[in-house]
C-alpha cells in the first residue's frame, strides 16, 4: 500500500472540498472493505484518503415520502436488523443478510457496497479494468473469462458488477442522492451505473469529488412481492456466479408490473425488460417463470469460457420469480445434514 494523507472531516462540505476532481488522486474511506484491498494490491493508489465515517446524518435508516431513506454510512448488518425493512422489504433484508460475511457486514456500508469496484481478476491483479495484450486484443476475451459478462459485453468492458445488493435495490426502483461541489443531485439507481468505455471512466456516474449520501427506496405497496436468488458455489461468503432480483406488483395472482434485475452478468446490474414483459399480465408458475428466464438471456452472448452463465442466469431469474410469488424453489444446500 502506498502512503497517503488522511483526513476525517466532520461535515459533508468539508469532505467534498477534500476530494480531488480527478479520479485516482483521492479516495473515500467508509467501510474500507473494498478500498483497502485495492490499495494493498496497488490497484488504487490515492494520495489522500477521506474518511467519511464521522459525517453526520448519513448513519440512519428512516422513513421518507412513504418509502425508505438509508444513509450511505449504514453498515450492512443493520439493514436486516431494521424491523421496518424486515416487515416491508423482507427480500432486501434477506439479500443484505446473504452478502459477504458477518465481519464484512459489520464494517461495510451500503453506500460503499454500491460504489465498490469490480472483482474482475484481471483488474484486481493490476492488469487494468479493460486489459489488452500486445496486439491490442482484450486479455479477458482471449483469456479466462469464466466469471465475466454475458450481457452488455460488446467491449471493451467485460467485467461484471460486483454488488449483490444493487440488483435488488434497482428492482425496488431505488434512487440515490449524491453531493458534490455543485451541490446535491438525485438520480435513479439504474442511471447511477453505466458501462465504461475507457480506463479513465468509472462504472458509475459518480464524479470524483462527489459523495453518495443516501439511498431512497419507494414505498412498498401492498401488492408488492419480491425475492432475490443467488447462484454461488459455496453456502456462504462467496461471490455469486449470477444473481437475480425480482419485484412484482400483483393484483391477485396476476402480475401487474415487474422489475427483474440480474447481477454479475454484465458490467452493470442488468434490468431485463424482456423478463418483465414475459410475466406481465400473467400468473407466475414454473412455465411462465422459465419463459421469463429464457427471455432474460435472449440477448446474452457467451465469451469463450462463460457460456454456462447463460443457463444459470435463466435459472436464477426463474427461481427469483417463483420465490417472489411465494412458491418453493430448489435449494441444494438444504439437502443432507450438517457435521
Amino acid at each position: 500500500m502506498n502512503n497517503f494523507e488522511y483526513a476525517s472531516p466532520t461535515s459533508v462540505e468539508q469532505a467534498v472540498a477534500l476530494l480531488s476532481s480527478t479520479w485516482g488522486e483521492s479516495e473515500i474511506l467508509a467501510g474500507g472493505t473494498d478500498l483497502l484491498g485495492r490499495m494493498k494490491d496497488y490497484v488504487s493508489t490515492p494520495k489522500r484518503l477521506i474518511n467519511i465515517k464521522k459525517l453526520p446524518g448519513l448513519h440512519a435508516i428512516s422513513k421518507e415520502n412513504g418509502g425508505l431513506r438509508i444513509g450511505a454510512l449504514v453498515t450492512l448488518d443493520r439493514i436486516p436488523e431494521s424491523s421496518d425493512i424486515r416487515k416491508n422489504y423482507a427480500a432486501l433484508a434477506e439479500c443484505v443478510a446473504e452478502a459477504a460475511s458477518p465481519q464484512i457486514r459489520n464494517m461495510a456500508t451500503i453506500g460503499g457496497n454500491l460504489c465498490q469496484r469490480p472483482r474482475c481478476w484481471y483488474f484486481r491483479n493490476g492488469m487494468g479494468l479493460m486489459p489488452k495484450n500486445s496486439e491490442g486484443k482484450s486479455l479477458v476475451a482471449e483469456g479466462d473469462n469464466r466469471y465475466h459478462a454475458i450481457l452488455g459485453n460488446d467491449g471493451p468492458a467485460y467485467f461484471v458488477t460486483p454488488s449483490t445488493i444493487a440488483p435488488m435495490l434497482l428492482a425496488l426502483n431505488a434512487r440515490v442522492r449524491l453531493i458534490g461541489p455543485g451541490g446535491p443531485r438525485e438520480i435513479a439507481l439504474e442511471n447511477f451505473f453505466r458501462v465504461p468505455h475507457s480506463e479513465d471512466e468509472r462504472e458509475h456516474n459518480l464524479q470524483a469529488n462527489e459523495i453518495l449520501t443516501d439511498i431512497l427506496v419507494p414505498a412498498a405497496g401492498s401488492g408488492m412481492r419480491a425475492a432475490n436468488y443467488e447462484v454461488r458455489q459455496k453456502a456462504a461468503f462467496d461471490w455469486p456466479l449470477v444473481t437475480a432480483a425480482a419485484v412484482l406488483h400483483m393484483s391477485g395472482n396476476t402480475v401487474q408490473n415487474a422489475r427483474v434485475v440480474m447481477g454479475a452478468v454484465a458490467p452493470v446490474p442488468w434490468l431485463s425488460s424482456e423478463a418483465a414483459e414475459a410475466v406481465t399480465g400473467k400468473a407466475i408458475d414454473e412455465e411462465t417463470a422459465a419463459a421469463a428466464g429464457r427471455a432474460a438471456v435472449s440477448k446474452a452472448r457467451a465469451l469463450s469460457e462463460n457460456g454456462y452463465k447463460i443457463q444459470i442466469a435463466a435459472v436464477a431469474v426463474k427461481r427469483a420469480l417463483l420465490a417472489a410469488s411465494g412458491q418453493p424453489v430448489p435449494n441444494v444446500f438444504a439437502q443432507g445434514g450438517a457435521a
Binding site: V16, A17, G183
Partner: peptide
Amino acid sequence: EKEPANLSRRDFLKISGIAASV
C-alpha cells in the same frame, strides 16, 4: 433526473463556506 429545486450550486458553496477544494 431531478435536482432538488431548492438548493443551487451557489447556495451550496455558500453553506459549505469552502469555495475551493483543498
